[in-house]
Design a protein around this nucleic acid. Structure first.
Ligand SMILES: [Mn+2]
Ligand SMILES: [Mn+2]
Ligand SMILES: [Zn+2]
Ligand SMILES: [Zn+2]
Lengths: 144, 144
DNA sequence: GCTACTATCGCAAATCGTTCTCAATAAGGA
DNA sequence: TCCTTATTGAGAACGATTTGCGATAGTAGC
C-alpha cells in the first residue's frame, strides 16, 4: 500500500501542481495526529517542530488533502471544522456525548445498506456518508 | 398537539426567561419557512414583514430554539450553519449531491436500529442522530 | 395599575475563522 | 543555468457571530 506522502505526491503531480516542502509538512503533521484536528492544532504542531509555515498555507493545503482523499471533514464544532486523516483507515462513524463532548468512533455495517437503498431510490451514485449518533455517555447519564 | 408557539412559551417560562415579541417573531419566521434556512434568511424574512428586529436578537434566539427542540442544525455550508424546524415533523436524513448541492430528504428505519445497537454497545443514552449520504445526483452523474 | 428591578433589545464595536492581495521566493521545464 | 510562473508568508480584508452598553420594556410585588 502506498504511503500517504506517495499518494499526495501523485495527486499533486497529476494536478500539475508543485511539490513543496510546506505542503508535505502539512501531510506529515496530519498523519502524525491520530485524532480529530482543526487548522489551529495543525498550525501549533507545525510551528513547534518545524518553524516556518503560515496559516494561509495550511488553509490552502486542506482542500488538496480533501480532494486527494487523505482527509475528510469530521464535524463542525466550536465555530470551525474538525478533520481527520482517513487514508489507510477503514470508515467509521461518530458517537457523541452532548454533555461532555466525548466522541467515540464506531463501525456499523448496516449503514452501507442504507447508502445502497437510498442511492437506488433517488438514482444517486452514492460515494459516502457521515453518521453521527448523539446522546449521553455513561458518566453523564447518572448526573441527571 | 401543542403549537410551536405554545411549546416555546412553555420553554421560556420554565427557564424563567421573558416572553418578548422579538423572540416570538423568530419562532413564527422559523415555522413559516418550510425548508432549510440560515440566520440571514431569517433576518431578511423578518425585516420584510415585520420591520424591526436585530440580527443579534436572532443569534441570541437560535440557542433557545435548539434547546427547546423546535429546530436543529441541518448542515454546515458556505461558511455558516443551516437549520430546519423539526417540531411536528418526523425525523429525516439528507442525501446531498456533491456537484450541484441539491439536498433530498429521506427516511430510513434501519438507522433507528443503529442507534439502539450503538447505544447498548457503548452504554450511551442515545437521543438522536444525524446522517448525511452524499454522492452524485441523476443529472450530475451523466456529465462525467 | 404603578413601581422597581433587571432581562432583553438594538446598535456598533470586537472577535474569530477564513480568504485574499501582493511582493518575494523557488519549483521545475527548457 | 535560466525563465516562467505557481507558491509562499504577512497582513489586510471579509463574513459570521459574539459582546458591551445604554435604552427599553417584561413582570413580580404592592
Ligand atoms: Mn473519527
Ligand atoms: Mn431537512
Ligand atoms: Zn458525557
Ligand atoms: Zn447534482
Amino acid at each position: 500500500m502506498k504511503s500517504e506522502i506517495e499518494v499526495f505526491r501523485e495527486f499533486i503531480r497529476n494536478k500539475g501542481l508543485r511539490k513543496t516542502p510546506e505542503r508535505e509538512q502539512v501531510v506529515r503533521a496530519v498523519f502524525a495526529i491520530h485524532d480529530h484536528f482543526d487548522v489551529d492544532e495543525l498550525y501549533v504542531l507545525l510551528r513547534r517542530e518545524n518553524e516556518k509555515i503560515s496559516k494561509a498555507t495550511i488553509y490552502r493545503t486542506i482542500p488538496l488533502l480533501l480532494e486527494s482523499g487523505l482527509i475528510q471533514e469530521a464535524y463542525f464544532e466550536d465555530g470551525h471544522l474538525h478533520y481527520e486523516h482517513i487514508y489507510g483507515h477503514e470508515h467509521h462513524c461518530h458517537l457523541r456525548c452532548l454533555e461532555c463532548g466525548q466522541i467515540i468512533e464506531f463501525t456499523e455495517e448496516i449503514v452501507r445498506d442504507v447508502e445502497e437503498k437510498v442511492g437506488e431510490r433517488y438514482d444517486f451514485l452514492v460515494t459516502g456518508h457521515k453518521l453521527e449518533v448523539y446522546g449521553h455517555c455513561v458518566k453523564c447519564k447518572v448526573h441527571r
